[in-house]
Design a protein around this nucleic acid. Structure first.
Lengths: 192, 192
DNA sequence: TATTACTGAATGAACGTTCATTCTGATAGG
DNA sequence: CCTATCAGAATGAACGTTCATTCAGTAATA
């Protein structure tokens, strides 16, 4: 009987604590406590802390991927598709601050670099594929600036992540209008 | 008796190790080893690890500030001033990868959030002041988009930091042309 | 009862920090 | 010129703490 009950509790507790305090501020004992299980129980579900961390990351990435697909259609015009992905991504971060904070912790750690390498250079089945597809189409169709994909990514993800962070930290209150303007500004940055 | 001999060695070692391995991957014993001093010697110059870390941060910030001032003149037209600051900042990061990596470590840590709060909300004498001044001027003169300062910052710093990171990690090779195009694209994002 | 799931005290490694000791080189007395 | 004295710089082994992980024992389930 594979009870995901406890596994889910462990993952939830890990997300909360790591998002709030970072990897080193979230000891296994604390995660176990928050999850309402014994410290040893975690090791029945995850080989070690690294595995817990990376599996949680994959869960999150899958969720984001699914959220972005909603209402996305290759039929729509290019610009509309871009605006959709941008606003959806920003929405998702704003409505899931724990997820966002976790991703930040993850990306700024030894774990993160290897994953980013895959995402930018490789052909991993990651959240970026839908973006990669769109951006490469945009450059070949001369809709976007003639810049390396990595630069275009930076011009888009850079502001989106910054803005999401500022919102979550309370430096700015993003509403629908502001979100829209931000993504439009990103568009101005990448469009030819 | 230049008292700063050992202090400088300690700071240099801390910069190298923390930039490369993060705060938790750079134990005091390792910093001492790299600096060629005893472990206890560090505590003659710095009260504890936190003080070492934040003093190193202030040193770095001061250097960047100075680098940005070079060739900067409030006489020049707005756009030119922006392009100057942008390219100089990017140059500085690219030519000082250890500094950049250290800043990333710092900003993504408990230390960083408080500092960012100051930088964005407060009136600290930090690297951002020259940017804040310029951007506020740009909005009042209706040169830049009518967006909160924080958003404009995100539209500029977001891409610059992303691109610098990608260059340093080897995901893209930035040359003069590419740097210029990147900063121009940022300009497109923020200009009205 | 047999098997599996769970627990949390025990373990050992790693860390920041301390402090008794050693080193260094300047000064003073002879 | 030599040697004794000394202040403070430097050292690194030792300490106490924290953490991930283990495992012997307990509870639940079949």
């Amino acid at each position: 009987m594979v009870k995901n009950d406890k596994r889910d509790e462990i993952v939830r507790a890990a997300l909360e604590l790591i998002a709030e305090h970072g990897f080193h501020g979230a000891p296994m004992a604390m995660i176990a406590g928050r999850a309402g299980v014994g410290a040893g129980t975690i090791y029945r579900y995850f080989e070690n802390k690294d595995v817990l961390i990376t599996e949680l990351y994959r869960d999150i990435e899958k969720n984001i991927m699914e959220a972005l697909q909603q209402g996305y259609s290759v039929e729509k015009p290019f610009r509309e598709r871009f605006l959709h992905l941008g606003t959806e991504l920003l929405h998702h971060f704003i409505h899931n601050p724990l997820v966002f904070r976790y991703l930040e912790q993850f990306h700024n750690s030894p774990y993160g670099v290897a994953f980013r390498r895959d995402k930018i250079l490789g052909t991993s089945t990651s959240e970026c594929n839908v973006f990669r597809e769109l951006f490469e189409l945009g450059t070949t169709q001369q809709i976007l600036k003639d810049l390396p994909l990595v630069i275009l990514f930076a011009l888009f993800f850079g502001p989106v992540l910054s803005v999401a962070r500022d919102h979550i930290l309370g430096f700015v209150e993003l509403d629908e209008v502001l979100i829209h303007h931000t993504i439009e500004a990103c568009w101005d940055g990448i469009k030819r």
